[in-house]
Design a protein around this nucleic acid. Structure first.
Length: 421
RNA sequence: AUACUCAGCACGGCGAAAA
C-alpha cells in the first residue's frame, strides 16, 4: 500500500491524476490494499484540476468500501479547499457541516477555512474564526496567521495587519518568509514601496531571508510605480543573494517593460527566460499580446494566439478578454464579438471580466441592446454581474440618454445585493 | 518525501494620481 501510494502521489503531482485513478482501479481489482491515503491523494489531483464532481465521487466510493473506515478530516479538508478555490463558498460550508458531524476538524481545516474566507473577501469572518480558535484552545500556527494577514493586506488594511502580526509574535509564533512576503506584497500593491523596501531589509536582519517570491513582489511593485531603475537594482540584489528569477519573475519583468514601451528590453528578457529553460506560460503569451496590441500590432498578436494553440498552451479567458478589449478600444467591436464567440466555441468559459469587457465595448459603440443580450447570457451562464458590470451598463444607458432605464438597472443591481461604490 | 492548509506575474467601468 505504502509503495502504491508513493507512486500515485508522484503521478498526481505531475498532474496525471487521470492515470493515477486508472491505476487505482486496477489495483482495486487485485486486492484491497488501498486506504484513505490512496483516495485522498487522487482526490487532491482532481480538486487541483477543478474537477470537484469527480473528487466527491471518489469520496463516496471510499465511503462505500468499508463502513468501519469512514472518511477522515484530511479527506474533507481536500474537498473544502477545492470548493473554496472554485469560489463555491456555499458548497464548502455544506461539507464543513457534514464534516463536523462525523469527525473533529483539525488545525488544517481551520486554516483552510480561514484562507478561503480571506480570499473571498470575508476577512471579518476569517478574523472571527481566528478568535474562535484561540478561545476554544486550538493554537493557531504560522499558516493561520499568514492567511489572515494576506486577507487583511488584500483588503488594504495594513494597520490591522500590523496588529495581527504583533499578536502572532506575542503568542510566540515566529514569522517566516511567507509572513514577510505577504506583508511586503501588501505594501507593494498599495504602492507603498519605501515601506516595502524597508521591510525587505528588516526581514534579513531578523534572520529571515527573502526568496524569489519576496523579491518578485518588490520588483513588481517598483515596476508598477514606474521605478524601473530601482526594480533593476533589486533584481541585482536578488541574484547576488543567490535567488534565481523564475518564470513569474520573468513575466513580471516583461510586463513591466512592455507597459513602459520597453519593447527591446522585453524581447531581451523573453530570450533570457527561454535560455534559462522556462517555457512561456499562458501568462507570458497574454502579456506579449497585450504589448503588441497596445502598440497597434494586432496582426502579430493574433499570430501569437495561433502559436499558443499550436504549442498546446491554449488561450484562457484572460487572454481572450484582453484581445476583446483591445479590439473594442480600436473601434473594431464587431471583430471583438467574433473573438468572444471564438472563446466560447473553444470551450473556454468566459468569466465576469470577459463579459464586462464585451459589454463595455458594445455600450461605447452605442450598441446597447446587444450589450443587454450579453448581460442576459452571462446571467444564464450563472455568472454574477458585479459592480463594474453594472456601472458599465448604467454609464452606457445614461450616455445614450436613457437615464430612466439606467436608474431602473441601478435599483435592480441593489436588489441583487450588489453594493454601489 | 505515502495524502489535506499560507505569499509573487497577464484581462473590465468610473474616479483619483502621474504626465
Amino acid at each position: 500500500t505504502y509503495t502504491w501510494n508513493v507512486l500515485l502521489s508522484v503521478f498526481v503531482r505531475a498532474g496525471r491524476h487521470g492515470e493515477a485513478r486508472q491505476m487505482m482501479n486496477e489495483q482495486m481489482l487485485q486486492d484491497c490494499s488501498l486506504d484513505v491515503v490512496t483516495f485522498t491523494t487522487i482526490m487532491t489531483g482532481y480538486t487541483r484540476a477543478g474537477e470537484l464532481r469527480t473528487a466527491v465521487e471518489l469520496m463516496e466510493e471510499y465511503r462505500a468500501r468499508d463502513a468501519a473506515k469512514p472518511p477522515n478530516a484530511q479527506m474533507y479538508n481536500v474537498l473544502l479547499n477545492g470548493f473554496f478555490n472554485a469560489g463555491l463558498f456555499g458548497q464548502a460550508l455544506v461539507y464543513f457541516e457534514k464534516m463536523v458531524k462525523v469527525c473533529r476538524p483539525t488545525l488544517v481545516t481551520y486554516n483552510t477555512l480561514i484562507t478561503g474566507l480571506s480570499k473571498s473577501g470575508m476577512v471579518r469572518d476569517a478574523l472571527g474564526l481566528l478568535e474562535y480558535m484561540i478561545e476554544s484552545g486550538l493554537s493557531p500556527d504560522v499558516i493561520t496567521f499568514n492567511s489572515v494577514l494576506d486577507g487583511l493586506c488584500k483588503d488594504h488594511r495594513v494597520l490591522d495587519a500590523h496588529h495581527v502580526f504583533k499578536r502572532a509574535l506575542e503568542r510566540g509564533c515566529q514569522p517566516n518568509v511567507v509572513t514577510y512576503s505577504t506583508l511586503i506584497d501588501g505594501l507593494s500593491k498599495m504602492a507603498k514601496m519605501d515601506e516595502a523596501l524597508q521591510l525587505l531589509s528588516m526581514m534579513s536582519e531578523h534572520g529571515c531571508h527573502p526568496n524569489t517570491v519576496t523579491y518578485s513582489s518588490v520588483v513588481d511593485g517598483l515596476l508598477k510605480a514606474g521605478r524601473t531603475d530601482d526594480a533593476i537594482s533589486v533584481l541585482g540584489r536578488m541574484k547576488d543573494a543567490g535567488c534565481l528569477p523564475d518564470a513569474v519573475t520573468y513575466n513580471t519583468l516583461i510586463d513591466g517593460f512592455l507597459k513602459r514601451q520597453g519593447l527591446r528590453e522585453a524581447v531581451g528578457l523573453l530570450r533570457e527566460m527561454l535560455e534559462a529553460g522556462f517555457r512561456p506560460s499562458v501568462v507570458t503569451y497574454t502579456t506579449l499580446c497585450h504589448g503588441l496590441c497596445r502598440a497597434g500590432r494586432f496582426q502579430e498578436a493574433f499570430e501569437i494566439l495561433d502559436h499558443m494553440a499550436a504549442r498546446g498552451c491554449s488561450p484562457n479567458a484572460v487572454t481572450y478578454s484582453y484581445v476583446v478589449d483591445a479590439l473594442c478600444k480600436a473601434g473594431r467591436v464587431t471583430e471583438a464579438v467574433g473573438y468572444f464567440e471564438k472563446m466560447v466555441e473553444s470551450k473556454v468559459t468566459p468569466h465576469v471580466i470577459a463579459y464586462s469587457t464585451i459589454i463595455d465595448g458594445l455600450c461605447k459603440a452605442g450598441r446597447i441592446d446587444e450589450a443587454y443580450d450579453f448581460l442576459e447570457r452571462m446571467i444564464q451562464a450563472g455568472r454574477i454581474p458585479d459592480v463594474v458590470t453594472y456601472s458599465i451598463l448604467v454609464n452606457g444607458l445614461c450616455d445614450a440618454g436613457r437615464i430612466d432605464t439606467g436608474l431602473e438597472l441601478f435599483r435592480a443591481m441593489e436588489e441583487t445585493g450588489c453594493v454601489p461604490d
